[in-house]
Write a protein that binds this DNA or RNA. Sequence first.
RNA 1: GGGCCCGUAGCUCAAGCGGAUAGAGCAUCGGAUUUCUAAUCCGAGGGUUGCAGGUUCGAUUCCUGCCGGGCCUACCA
Length: 666
Amino acid sequence: MYRYLERRLAEHLREFLRRNYGLEIANIVVEQPPKIEFGEYALPLAFELAKKLRQAPRKIADEIVAGVGAIPGFEKFEVAGGGYINVRLKRTELALALAADRSPAAEVAPGKVLVEHSSINPNKAAHIGHLRNAILGDTFVRLLRFAGRDVDVQNYIDNTGVQVADVVVGFLHIEQKTRAQIEALAAAPRFDYVCWDLYARVSHWYEENKSNLQVRAATLRSIEEGNNEIAAVADLISVAVLKRHLETMDRLDIEYDFLPRESEILHLHFWDAAFSTLKETGVLTYEAEGKNAGCWVMRRGGTSAGKALTTDGAELTGERITEEEQKVIVRSNGTVGYVGKDIAYHMWKFGLLGRDFGYRKFYRYPNGHDCWISAVEGEKVHPHFGDVAEIYNVIDARQSEAQNTVIEALRGLGHGQAADRYTHFSYEMVALTPRCAAELGYKLSEEEKARSWIEVSGRKGFGVKADDLLDALISSARQEVDGRHPELSEAERAGIAAQIAIGALRYFMLKFTKPSVIAFDFKDALSFEGDTGPYAQYAVVRASNIFRKGGFDPAAFCKDEAGEVFTADFSSYLEGESGNDVWELWLAAAKTSYVVSQCIATTEPAYLAKHAFQLAQLFNTFYHRYPILSEADEGRKKFLLTTTAVVRRELIRILAAMGISVPPVM
RNA sequence: GGGCCCGUAGCUCAAGCGGAUAGAGCAUCGGAUUUCUAAUCCGAGGGUUGCAGGUUCGAUUCCUGCCGGGCCUACCA
């Protein structure tokens, strides 16, 4: 609602400026005043116009305020300070619309969106770094769906790469296991933990004797070729670990629709289809000499094409790319690197490849939702994946160059529109504080002790596993729940502890903005107080308590009839100085879809976490200040109950968009 | 060497496209009404926004240089 009114205000002003000043201002800046007393919107417009009109900002502001006229829903315009225009809404009107949950339908961009996230190598347990990825990705999916978009969720599986090969080497060469023995291990719980330890041992084994690396190379070759015993072992390992990842993520309410695998990109020859067009369009050039002699290369993403561009801007053919700026796509032995496969895969995503995967049902979630996986020969009936209008790849910042290279390849192929709708959803890694690393038994050098964080390493088996962290959170939450609610059944207490643990974890991963490295520490992550998920959950529980103890249904206070009954009372409680406190709460509650659209536009879910916290904080203050059930004035009591019902509804929605549910009691 | 990112309170982080007195949480200290109340609330202390310039009516935000830190820069994925 807040978002809709902002747009209406901006459009009205744009029209006003066009008519009265003959000015075209494409982007009218609308801010939020620092204090509720100043109104709901603030316009620094007069400062901007001062130069153009050669007049004092204050004078321009006065003129605009005098001439702007009425806008439905708006109370008045005021000049403040040196030329700010503060805008006030008709509080009661907005409140009634909000109580009735009435909000004009926002236009939804057409076309399907594809979000790819998680993409964990299926050779070891997921760790906290993967959690950040999956939680960011899943939350972004929820935000897009909140905004009405049709979204497919994909999790790319590199099942034929070095990392899987390493674990295969571990089982076959170090552990000397047979395929049947590995199969038995894979069927046991937490097989991914077994792989986690083994993977670290394999890395060590390579270091002990460099000639062991030949075993890796041979294993990798066999896996890529397929149709042999080693490939079968690799497949059984990667499928088993993948299932474990799906289980781990399901604990956090994270689901996928489709799991495209590298094995199918290989075996269905996606690359061959891409290679010919890449050559024809000159995106790839052949190096006859130099360091990359015999390779097909392209310009590294992010390096400038500079003056090589002709005047029409499209022609890159014939341009020399310096060796420094070359990215090898096809090696001199004719094999293709991962960036090449990624280019083909992304052509498929946009429906530009002319080939498709086969599809098989792979995993059914407890709620009945099916997750599909790629296959050489698929089932006849399957959903249609790929061929989308827009994509988001949730991949950490270390891969931004590779991502940019893929984008540039699409652009070079003439698919500029696809390239424009390709978003690398980039975020920084999760590392450990030195203290946390020490707790995990990692021996720190003096230099490392002084650093603010230590990078995790799957290769070394150094990190916090996702399931371990969840277990720790659940047991910590469980202690609290047991102490507070001994009257509840075992199952109820377990359920509440899980909800709190998930709330704490998801919120923790979302509260940091993407470019910030998270220095992980158990103390912070296990906190349930202050700027945390449980804080926001608790605010909802408090609101629910009021309705439960009062014997009211919160939904009854959010409906249309509330508007009809309470119109007069609403204004007397909301308007004027005395209404500021409660109005601030209403206004915050009205901003949900505004914040969601900001999150999508900036690909930054942290704003939503901040919003949840702010709304919860305002509610807690309100809760403390206004006793509701004991309120003697019936009209006022109903107003306060409506306020509580609206805030409760919005908080539940906001938390749901973050994948956080709210326990019945806390 | 080149590219990208970061530097804000003791600690961890915010600050929407340049805007009003730079805000939270944690930690510390002091308080909270027989109530829907403590996973909460109120208050206090705590800042040369890394440094130096520039642009601007206005800079944490944009530009330049420097200092410090991280990541990327494989015919690995």
